[in-house]
Nucleic acid binder design. Structure first.
Lengths: 337, 337
DNA sequence: CTTGGCACTCGGGAACACAGAGTGCCAGAG
DNA sequence: CTCTGGCACTCTGTGTTCCCGAGTGCCAAG
């Protein structure tokens, strides 16, 4: 069906189109890449490629442009992920190393990705469901009010103010805190509901109402925040890319947490790249945009995902290299802190 | 200089231009507003207004468009802030009331403002410098590692991991925590540096190295975070507004925390509105955009600022009404939590 | 299978004309 | 002195036409 030369032609078309943003014709191809054949031959190959839906022409007398299917083939079989330069790697490292807490790690990662790829960067906070408890703190604020602070092993901190049904002395709070921590230390967040079930039984009866209130807030926190937190940046790069049409749709999609999460896609292997090209992606407002995403995590556990979004016409090898590298570094930083 | 009719003409020009987005001519004005005079008279007035720099014409044979100076006069003397409808007020209230923590309050406020005004919303987190300490927590994580958590009266929580120079027992940490809280409870954050100066003296000598480390991190946190946290949303509204040119600049400005903070401007009275029109604002990339901002706070203390950014050609009375209302409600919510 | 030749198509830019909105100015009326 | 109607003038934006050139598809020959 597709012999080697046709594939070479497709690759050349994608590369040229990405770099020039103009439909590429047979003559230009023959000139710029030395394929060793004449424009006429290339035309025949192009006709075949078009026949099979890998490329298309915007209008009769124009050059060819890759279709989503064409990009897909390019990404799957015709390109190699381009590793970052040494300077870039070092830049990543130093830039991320300066972060002092999780918020800052995530914020810097967004900036980094956006700058590196000149695209819109999207980073998901380390998932609560896949984290575990590092510490639970109960801080008395007033006689009948405490603050519940949950610290996870990924450095994420959730806090919630709780109004208690009755006053409770500080030492009893200390006891409650001790019991809770004894139960939950290192416990995966998804196991928390089962694990705390027997906490009230270990407490003196008079503390149980307060404990019940606190526990219910704790569980609520886990449920509500199940909807993951996600952050993006680099939208200025959108304006530079030329898809003036649809820009509004893209911005809207970005502000919808839910859409954004679905965009990052499902997990495959850790730091395995997911590429969604144009119409492949689940949201109609994003025709014309592609997503390159990867999971990141510490050790071998994937904690969340990150990626970039840009025009279908993007430099996939470079972008994929950048996303993969950043995902790895973020994982390392997270493991180290 | 400017008699009443000329002012009425200016007002009419602003209103028409805002609603139609097209240069407005003398005939259209005479038709739509019953000023009681003929187009010719209006033309004379317009000539005077142009002479003095309140309006301008894009090209010779077009209608007039307000200048920044014209909008300024309009805002200062010709318009009344438009209060929100009852339905809108209720919507705000219920929407904000559902928030469980500070992050969520801020996030919802951004959405609310963006939706209400159909503009880009910008919200600053309650300032650290103007908050006070509600509680300091020191959580042991490992033998030589603790997490320092600082909770402010505005619900803001800062946390930082600290590596200690030497191991320290839990009960000694508890003591340190007690001393710290005793000193700092209710202390304004700006007073913290002086207040903690004598903490080491109250501790047994063997705890002082650890305490010194922890204190220095605490102070660092205050300094670093002096650069305030700020959040924006509703950028999709930018694409709808028609200033395709310069959109890139606007997006870039929005991603610069520093610029953003300066944009919100300085404090005047609480929930006093600040309006910056086009060239009045300090950042050159934002020619063509105006900012409407207000301070918000609980009680009578201004904690931070919020506002919206949109094209100079915006509906000031409505926008100002919305910003003012949201600022007030946020203040209330914050005071109540 | 490849290649050069050739006729054909179509988008986009240049040149041009034209209608319409809007202006400035002036002279006359109140 | 102020307002008004009339009038000539000046633009921009739009539609039309025309033509160039890039690029194609097809064909016949190597």
């Amino acid at each position: 069906m597709l012999d080697d030369r046709k594939l070479a032609v497709l690759r050349a078309i994608v590369e040229d189109y990405v770099s020039t943003n103009e439909p590429v014709g047979s003559k230009a191809l023959a000139d710029r890449h030395n394929l060793g054949v004449s424009p006429a031959t290339i035309r025949n190959d192009m006709a075949a490629l078009e026949e099979q839906g890998y490329i298309t022409q915007p209008h009769t007398s124009a050059g060819r442009v890759p279709t989503d299917k064409g990009y897909r083939l390019f990404v799957d079989r015709l390109s190699q992920i381009k590793p970052l330069s040494g300077a870039e790697r070092r830049a990543i490292e130093t830039f991320l190393a300066g972060a002092v807490d999780l918020d800052e790690i995530v914020m810097r990662t967004v900036r980094l990705l956006a700058q590196l790829t000149r695209q819109v960067a999207v980073v998901q906070y380390p998932s609560l469901t896949r984290s575990s408890v590092r510490h639970v703190e109960i801080v008395p604020l007033a006689e009948r009010r405490v603050m519940l602070v949950l610290i996870t092993n990924t450095g994420r901190v959730e806090q919630r103010v709780v109004d208690l049904p009755e006053a409770i002395a500080d030492d009893r709070i200390a006891n409650l805190r001790a019991v809770l921590n004894a139960c939950l230390d290192g416990c995966g967040l998804s196991q928390v509901p089962e694990t705390v079930a027997d906490v009230p039984d270990r407490l003196p009866p008079e503390d149980r109402p307060a404990a019940a209130t606190i526990l219910s807030v704790l569980l609520e926190t886990l449920v509500e925040r199940h909807e993951e937190k996600i952050v993006f940046g680099g939208t200025a790069n959108l304006a530079a890319a030329d898809f003036s049409i649809g820009l509004r749709d893209v911005l809207e999609a970005l502000e919808e947490q839910v859409v954004l999460i679905r965009l990052l896609g499902e997990t495959r292997g850790l730091s395995e790249l997911t590429v969604r090209i144009g119409s492949e992606n689940p949201y109609s407002g994003l025709r014309g945009t592609s997503i390159v995403a990867a999971g990141y995590g510490s050790g071998d556990k994937e904690l969340a995902r990150l990626g970039v979004l840009g025009p279908t016409r993007m430099d996939y090898p470079v972008t994929m290299g950048a996303v993969r590298a950043v995902a790895r570094y973020v994982g390392q930083i997270l493991a180290g802190s």
